[in-house]
């Protein structure tokens, strides 16, 4: 039944993001020479979760209260919903719909929209500033990322994600569409709030984040949504550019490994890069970042789309 499938998906996501939180902390601690708490630091996330659950819930006064309470759930849903169309293995997908790629894009846009509303509902200038920052940054890269997806769609000739993966049997799209792969990867960094493309963590309230007013369960939802989003972006990169569940070469040994494992390995590779960029780089200033997105990535992606379409047309029809 569909309900049981949804429950399985949600619990898998829950387990994966808890693992991700743990691994992220361990890696960042290793890079930053931090000492790790007892029992390999395993109790730390649990303690954090407890602390968050028993935090006092602080609500803004005024008429945005209902929206303030509802929005984290909606935000979480808009990100989890994307997982419905992501094929982890041949046929292992909640809904293998025709317009899977479009559904993903739609949900990306919807979550951006929700960030603005979260900023508004928080009823605070700092949250609003954070929301506007995040949205302006995401929108600046969103268009180029969508064009990157368009390139993949042109090459694969389908919008069904499982078809896109199967079309990469000969060559993963990260090779022919390498620049677009880079563009999409940077978009993923922007979306997952990894430096060099995000708000600073330097404790300055004036460039805080949109979730600044949330405490307790509301914050849990938003924080969790971020980790699910990290998982999601790595899965999307895997599906679009890294050949999904397909092994890198058609070697006997590789074929022995279950394809779900391949999917997981590729995802973990992306996640590792996300986590290490978090520790390694300073952060671009907002205006540089937006300029970079609009002035360099967008024109370049447009040119690449035309080139990809031209190449596909020529190779399909055999004439100019």
């Amino acid at each position: 039944m569909i309900i049981s499938e949804i429950i399985i998906l949600l619990s898998a996501l829950f387990a994966a993001s808890v693992l991700l939180i743990y691994v992220e902390r361990k890696l960042i601690a290793a890079v930053r020479l931090k000492k790790i708490a007892r029992v390999y630091g395993l109790m730390q996330p649990i303690a954090d979760a407890f602390k968050l659950f028993f935090n006092e819930t602080i609500l803004p006064r005024g008429k945005t209260q209902v929206a303030f309470m509802l929005l984290p759930v909606l935000f979480f849903t808009s990100i989890v919903a994307c997982w419905a169309v992501i094929p982890v293995d041949e046929g292992v997908v909640l809904a293998d719909i025709n317009a899977g790629a479009l559904f993903l894009v739609a949900m990306f846009f919807l979550s951006i929209c929700l960030i603005v509303v979260i900023g508004w509902a928080s009823d605070s200038k700092y949250a609003m500033f954070g929301a506007l920052h995040s949205v302006a940054m995401m929108v600046a890269y969103e268009l180029s990322a969508m064009l990157a997806i368009v390139c993949v769609l042109i090459s694969s000739g389908s919008m069904r994600l499982s078809d896109i993966v199967n079309a990469q049997a000969e060559m993963w799209y990260c090779l022919p569409h390498f620049p677009m792969f880079v563009v999409f990867f940077i978009y993923a960094l922007v979306r997952t709030n990894c430096p060099p493309f995000r708000m600073s963590e330097s404790g300055n309230i004036s460039d805080g984040e949109y979730s600044i007013e949330y405490t307790s369960v509301g914050y849990i939802f938003i924080a969790f949504a971020r980790y699910v989003n990290m998982l999601l972006m790595s899965a999307v990169i895997t599906v679009f550019f890294l050949g999904g569940w397909l092994p890198p070469f058609e070697v006997e040994l590789f074929l022995l490994i279950p394809s779900v494992i391949w999917f997981g390995l590729k995802m973990s590779l992306c996640l590792l890069i996300f986590i290490f960029t978090k520790t390694a780089f300073p952060i671009y200033r907002y205006d540089n970042l937006v300029q970079f997105g609009w002035k360099m990535f967008l024109p370049f992606s447009l040119v690449w789309v035309i080139a990809a379409a031209g190449y596909t047309l020529v190779s399909a029809t055999g004439k100019f």
Binding site: R32, P195, S202, I283
Partner: peptide, 13 residues
């Protein structure tokens, strides 16, 4: 300064 520029790793070192 590095932390203000967004990289807090040097401050740990």
């Amino acid at each position: 300064i590095a932390e203000g520029a967004g990289n807090s790793t040097p401050s740990y070192y």
